[in-house]
Amino acid sequence: MASGVPEHEVWAAADAVLARGERPTVERVRTELGRGSPARVGQLLEQWWEQLAQRLKGHALLPELPGEVAQAFTEAWRLALAHADTTAQAALAEEHNRLFAEQTTLTQERKLWEIALAEAKADLTESANKLAQAELQGAERQGLIDRLAAEVADVRQQRDHLQAQLEHRQTELNALRAEHATVQAHIRTVEDRTHQQVDLARQEVKALSQQQERVHREHTKRVNELTAQRDALQTAVRAAEQTAAHQAGQIAALEATINQWRRTQTTGTKRVSHKTPSPATSKVRERQKKATR
């Protein structure tokens, strides 16, 4: 409410209340005005009562009154003034208490706002420090990511190079295996031919045995020729077996090189199991042992 209400409006409102036959009080005058603080209205209402007393003494409203009536009216006026003063003082005390309560509330709210502002500043400082720390960590992590990306690219390049070497070695291994298969086929062909020739020689020996008495010399010559031929064939077989053994050694060495290269590509925690020799290599080694015997 506005506190600067003019005094003439307060006096007019008091006159209106009095004209209705009611005693002007602070609340009634404020209700009549529709505004004004209790302190301001109470102060002006006291002035109105003083002015009303002067008006009554000067016979402004009642110019002529009997002495007893005037004395009674004066006493009533005095009581009204005393009551108005009491009412005004109560209103002033109430307004003062209300203002003090509002001031206390505002002081408490101000302290709360100051505490909240200090906490907000502390939070802001902490957030700024955390942000700076996060940015520093982000920069460090970005550097780590860049280094890891470079290492990954280098590892991929090495992997591609090793993959190409592995494919080349695999091609060589396939070629050696094909050559080994060809040699094995040739050895089997020679063996089959030798067996056939031995069988033929046996048949001829049997036939010659039946003619031993008649052609002893021819039989002996023939046996010698067959024996020489057999030795030659056995020599050829041994040479072929040695060639196959040499090729099998080359294949085993190449397989060992490939296995060694594969072991260098692993993490170092797994062991590569030893490969068993291929059936063809075992067969060649067995034949070498028999030939040595």
Score class of each variant (00 low, 15 high):
130 K>E: 09
173 L>D: 03
227 T>V: 07
115 I>M: 12
132 A>H: 09
160 D>A: 15
197 Q>W: 03
173 L>P: 01
106 L>M: 10
102 E>K: 15
123 D>T: 11
223 V>R: 02
141 R>T: 03
148 L>S: 10
159 R>A: 13
216 H>T: 07
207 A>H: 10
125 T>I: 14
198 V>H: 07
102 E>C: 00
195 H>K: 13
137 Q>G: 03
91 A>S: 09
216 H>S: 07
194 T>C: 14
191 E>V: 08
212 Q>K: 14
177 R>D: 03
122 A>Y: 06
142 Q>E: 11
204 E>K: 14
98 R>L: 05
223 V>P: 00
192 D>Y: 04
122 A>D: 09
202 R>P: 00
157 Q>G: 09
213 E>A: 14
124 L>V: 06
197 Q>F: 05
175 A>H: 08
207 A>K: 14
183 V>N: 08
189 T>S: 15
159 R>M: 14
216 H>F: 05
177 R>Q: 08
121 K>F: 06
147 R>G: 01
180 H>D: 04
177 R>E: 06
162 L>P: 02
183 V>R: 14
155 V>G: 10
99 L>N: 09
181 A>M: 01
95 E>W: 05
176 L>Y: 01
170 Q>Y: 04
185 A>M: 02
151 E>C: 07
91 A>K: 13
138 G>E: 05
105 T>S: 14
215 V>K: 13
192 D>V: 06
171 T>Y: 05
174 N>T: 09
94 E>T: 03
170 Q>T: 03
173 L>G: 04
173 L>H: 11
131 L>T: 06
107 T>C: 08
169 R>H: 05
116 A>C: 09
102 E>H: 12
197 Q>D: 05
166 L>D: 10
106 L>N: 11
186 H>S: 08
102 E>N: 12
144 L>N: 06
176 L>P: 00
199 D>R: 13
